[in-house]
Amino acid sequence: MGMPAPSTPLFPWRHRAQGDFQALLDAHVAAADFPCVGAKAALAKGTLAVLACDRIDSAWDDLRIHDGLMHFAADYRAEPGLFRSFAVIFDGPDALSEDAFETALWQRAQSISDKDVWRGQGYDKGVSADPDSPHFSLSFGGEAFFIVGLHPNASRPARRFARPTMVFNLHDQFTTLRDQGRYEGMREKILVRDEALAGSRNPMLARHGEISEARQYSGRVVDAEWKCPFSYAGTPE
């Protein structure tokens, strides 16, 4: 299955920058020094979907983003497969500090999660809704997602991108890689490539299930005292 359409059934229109943002991300991931081999695989398969939006510090597109995630999750359940990502690229602001980007990312995550509750979606039973839990993941449309934040002012080169971006990766794909015995090898390959790019390994890249993944979403290096600002508004079953 190829990438989903850049519009959604609830909002069947394209943002003015849709084509430009898709091309921008494709070129970024295709670059020889880009470290994430999973994203490269998604690009090669045509399953790196992009939804262009306005501002990451505004709720304007949140329902449209949630609609896209709902259909992305439904498409995955209908035809499961590795290496699919749903990238939401925002037109700005481009001058956010790491702290400001982290704040905006979690505001969007909270708002989109609240819409998941409002639209009657259950939380993925395979993960925890508690951001302090080592089994935490966000859930949209009944599927768990891990977010990778990208923006122009990221301290880690691998997280730098021309526009503020939230890449939603299916948590189920990490489980599948583990079941196939491929997770550790892929993780090590990403770490080696990241070290070659940045000169050091990313200290925030913990193994899934060891510590809350929420600490990794924005890309900012955080200490042990960091508290996730997310709170699930529903009642996990």
Rank of each mutant, 00 (worst) to 15 (best):
P4L: 15
A5W: 01
A5T: 06
S7I: 01
S7Q: 08
T8W: 07
P9N: 10
F11T: 12
P12H: 04
A17W: 13
G19R: 11
G19W: 06
F21S: 00
L25I: 15
D26A: 11
A27L: 02
A27D: 14
H28V: 03
V29K: 04
A30E: 14
F34M: 04
V37C: 00
G38D: 01
K40H: 06
A41K: 03
L43T: 01
K45S: 05
T47Q: 10
L51M: 14
D54K: 09
R55P: 05
W60I: 06
R64Y: 02
I65T: 09
I65D: 08
H66K: 09
L69E: 12
M70Q: 10
M70A: 06
H71Y: 10
H71P: 05
F72K: 09
F72C: 13
A73N: 05
A74G: 07
Y76P: 01
A78Y: 05
G81D: 12
D91T: 07
D91K: 06
D91L: 06
G92F: 13
G92L: 12
P93K: 08
P93R: 11
D94A: 15
L96M: 15
A100E: 15
E102H: 04
W106C: 04
Q110M: 04
I112V: 15
S113F: 02
S113G: 13
D114A: 04
D116I: 10
W118Q: 05
G120L: 01
G120K: 01
Y123R: 10
Y123P: 03
D124F: 09
K125C: 06
S133Q: 03
L138T: 05
F140N: 08
G142D: 14
E143F: 00
I147F: 07
I147H: 00
H151K: 08
P152H: 12
A158N: 11
A158M: 13
F161N: 03
M166N: 01
M166R: 01
H171F: 14
F174D: 09
D179L: 15
D179S: 15
Q180D: 10
K189Q: 14
K189I: 05
V192Q: 10
R193S: 10
D194Y: 03
D194R: 03
E195M: 09
E195P: 01
A196E: 07
G199Q: 11
N202G: 04
R207Q: 12
R207G: 08
H208E: 15
I211G: 00
S212P: 02
A214S: 14
S218W: 01
G219H: 02
R220E: 08
V222K: 11
C228W: 06
P229F: 04
F230W: 15
A233Q: 11
